[in-house]
Design a protein around this nucleic acid. Structure first.
Lengths: 139, 139
DNA sequence: GATGTCACTGCAACAGCGTTGCATTATCAT
DNA sequence: ATGATAATGCAACGCTGTTGCAGTGACATC
């Protein structure tokens, strides 16, 4: 009964990296997977307040998840990094930042725009950031 | 001999705001206008090292220029803000960040991409960030 | 050109996010 | 069960950006 289509659970994803599966890593990756928005370090720290996870460990796990390709690290315009689990966001997507509540959501994008870069410039990654008002704050 | 087509000089632009035209403001706006890339606070501070301009003044002038519409403030993924003079960049443009040297350039974009936002989300501004290698670092 | 007002500057101290070093702990292979 | 070592916790630090307040300099007025 293999499940090739089902998304990997956090623990399975961690196991697949070959590194150690620790409580902090499971907790943080689970959190990112369940969240419907990109979480800041502070968000994660508060959510894990009951689990005695050190600030520094949160930073290290988030960066490690990013380096393993299990999370995306995006820069906010509040000088904060935000993280979202990958997997459900494999498709090209943009980041929507609500100017009222500050939350960042991932939204799918149809196509990436054409670019006319100056000679010699090589594009490796294109990031689309939208700013506006989210449904909750608008409604 | 009016010059309606010529771009306003930094001093003229400052004068037009109605606020005081100070040495720091002229120096910083001139710097931004001449630069071919977006400058960080540190860039500005170093360039003005001989002029005895305080760190805090640089921050305040940069933010003030932004609020007056004379400069754009963009968030970098190094937890730094970068500023570029507006005027030559009135057209819609994207920001190209070189992963090697870290410099940020403004590049023109043909059209903004179509977006299918979730219900209730209102877009107010779209920002396009490209990451890659700049001409100097590639060559 | 002199004078007064208040916007702007400089200085100092602070705040927040993220990083580094090192001793300790806990995961996993054996 | 045991040992190697990856990962954690703790403490101290660094950097970007902010705030409060006293002093100065730009500009309007005379």
């Amino acid at each position: 009964m293999s499940k090739p289509i089902a998304p990997a659970s956090p623990t399975e994803s961690l196991r697949a990296t070959g590194a150690r599966v620790t409580g902090a890593r499971v907790a943080i990756l689970s959190l990112l997977t369940q969240a419907n928005r990109a979480l800041s370090h502070r968000d994660v720290e508060q959510a894990l307040a009951n689990e005695h996870v050190d600030r520094v460990t949160v930073y290290r796990v988030l960066d490690w998840l990013t380096s393993e390709g299990l999370a995306h690290k995006i820069a906010d315009d509040e000088r904060v990094f935000r993280f979202s689990a990958v997997g459900k966001h494999d498709d090209p997507h943009a980041h929507f930042k609500c100017r009222t509540c500050g939350d960042v959501f991932c939204v799918p994008t149809g196509s990436t725009p054409k670019l006319n870069l100056p000679a010699g410039f090589k594009s490796e990654e294109v990031e689309l950031n939208i700013k506006g008002t989210c449904a909750r704050c608008a409604g």
